[in-house]
Design a binder for these strands. Structure first.
Lengths: 193, 193
DNA sequence: CCGATAAGTCAACAGCCATTGACATACCGG
DNA sequence: CCGGTATGTCAATGGCTGTTGACTTATCGG
């Protein structure tokens, strides 16, 4: 991304607090989402950001502070709920047919959420964020009677597909992909109506 | 469980390889399911088993060996697939409406699976076990054309319901329960036909 | 009953981790 | 241009981790 890094490694970057803070946060969002809270190390994150470890302590207080901030930044109120239901369903179904590594930033947020949910150190931090930025929007988006339990079921199924994809590891192809998408779409359509 | 431990802590246990091996495995299944691969430490597991850490190395080769064995022991082939489809669907739907503590040992095994899936160190180990003991049986049980992708979707949905129940924490009641079961039944019926 | 061997114990190792405090230096307002 | 302060650097610390090897001791067959 930044030519300064790759080409002129030697020359130090210009000093800019907000910029390096952003660098750190970006690196953290990436590593935390892919590796989980415990496996991602501050040293790696700092290295990826091209920054000294100590600065993380300065700007975010510590690992937990960095994580909570990265969490909030990752689960922005879902862009998806701006879509109409049909395209939403289709997008999700296709995303789930892909491999865990490819895809848009949405997946990124979902993975982050999932990883956070299954780590004992971060689970306590999560409940609030999920309610506010995930379950809430879905519920409002669904609307109508019984929005609450319906949102729960939908959220659960989405997470289920997410886990399935995580286990599967690779993208689906050809006929398998088609059948998967078709059936998943059917399910999701039923859930949002 | 074993009175010898609590009452007569001082007196060493009688030497019995297979018994201590089992103790270690049981403790490992518990800690790994609750804490995940990285957070659970061999020292804690050994302590819970009332055993020296070094024995884990002797009996299981190392942490990874212990984990794979605990994984296999946790995911037993699903009993559910012995049922005909109609009762299967109803049973699953009702089980998912209950709280996470009400059910059988399913939950424990599932937590194990979820934790394993979301840890990068163990995800590779998981694919095989899941194929063998979860996806495989479901696929065979479904049969017919496109059994593979259909099994994947079904597995995704089931996992999703499990996650939802896990997050929800408590059993559903009254109208919410009815709505949930009705919708879940519809979805599952569509998936198995 | 004795001794070989399995079972359990202990301590040390090297590696990684997050965190912290003291230090150096670039920057920018006066 | 100068000096104070925000920014970045460095090194050390203490703690925890999984693993290993040498050690002791119980057990049980001959």
């Amino acid at each position: 991304m930044d030519m300064t890094d790759t080409l002129l490694e030697a020359r130090p970057r210009k000093r800019d607090a907000t910029a390096t803070r952003a660098r750190i946060l970006a690196a953290a969002m990436d590593r935390f989402a892919r590796l989980g809270y415990e496996t991602a190390s501050l040293r790696e994150i700092a290295a990826e950001a091209g920054v000294d470890v100590a600065l993380i302590g300065r700007y975010f207080g510590g690992k937990e502070g960095l994580f909570t901030e990265a969490l909030k930044a990752s689960i922005h109120p879902s862009r998806l709920t701006e879509l109409d239901r049909e395209t939403y369903v289709r997008e999700v179904a296709e995303a789930m047919a892909n491999g865990p590594r490819d895809g848009h930033a949405d997946q990124h947020g979902f993975q982050f959420l999932l990883r956070a949910a299954t780590s004992p150190a971060t689970a306590p931090l999560l409940n609030l964020a999920v309610q506010e930025r995930f379950l809430g929007p879905i519920r409002d988006w669904l609307g109508g009677d019984d929005a609450e339990p319906r949102a729960r079921v939908l959220a659960g199924v989405i997470i289920g597909f997410l886990v399935e994809r995580l286990i599967r590891g690779k993208a689906l192809r050809g006929r398998e992909r088609d059948v998967f998408i078709e059936r998943a779409t059917t399910i999701l359509s039923a859930l949002v109506s």
